[in-house]
Amino acid sequence: MSEAIHILAIATISENKADQLEKVVQVCAGHSLKEKACKRYEISRDAEKKGRFTVSEIWASQAGFEEHLASEHFGELASFAREHGAVLEVIRQQPLQPTS
């Protein structure tokens, strides 16, 4: 069995583009949650800094995560982020406790 892939993505965009990015991320999340390998795809908005979002993801396998990265909906999110100057940090995490 493959080891799950845990991702924390932090996206930061100018405040005047934050509402647009939020919509694009929500569309991507809706599609991502339907992917077979997706175990978690939770988006949050920073409560103190408008324009900063986090996405907590768990993928069943590396192959499943790579399929997600190649998907049309992720491509649309990535294109929007690039075109509007968003800064994206992707952190691949190793849980220290077992996940349920």
Score class of each variant (00 low, 15 high):
E83D: 15
S56E: 13
E66T: 06
L8V: 06
E42L: 11
S2R: 13
K36V: 10
W59M: 04
N16H: 08
Q93I: 07
T12V: 09
Y41M: 01
K23R: 15
Q97L: 13
E76N: 13
H68W: 06
E67Q: 15
K34R: 14
F80A: 12
K36T: 14
I5Q: 01
S71W: 06
K17Q: 08
Q97S: 11
S44P: 03
P98W: 01
T99L: 13
K36N: 13
E89P: 01
A47M: 06
E3N: 07
H84S: 14
V25C: 05
G75N: 10
I43Y: 09
A4K: 03
V90T: 13
V90P: 00
L33D: 03
S32Y: 00
Q20Y: 08
L96N: 14
P98E: 05
D19R: 13
A63K: 08
T54Y: 07
S61G: 14
G30A: 06
L88G: 05
I43C: 12
R92C: 10
A29V: 05
I58Y: 01
A86Y: 10
L77M: 15
Q20A: 15
E83N: 13
S79Q: 11
P95M: 02
V24C: 05
L33V: 09
E57D: 05
K39W: 02
E67T: 11
H6Y: 15
K36S: 13
Q93A: 10
A63L: 07
G64S: 11
A70I: 14
R92D: 05
S71N: 11
E22C: 13
C38S: 12
A9E: 05
K17G: 03
E48S: 01
E76K: 14
H68G: 03
I91H: 10
K39H: 07
A78D: 12
A63F: 03
L8S: 11
A70E: 14
F74V: 08
I13G: 00
L69W: 02
A18E: 00
A70N: 15
D19C: 04
V27R: 11
I5G: 01
E76T: 11
I58F: 00
E66K: 12
E89V: 15
K49Q: 14
R82P: 05
Q94D: 10
R52I: 07
S79P: 01
R82F: 14
D46I: 01
S61T: 08
L88H: 04
G64Y: 09
A4C: 04
S79G: 07
N16C: 06
G51K: 06
P95Y: 02
I91Q: 09
I91S: 11
L8F: 12
A4I: 00
K50V: 08
D19H: 09
I7T: 09
V24F: 03
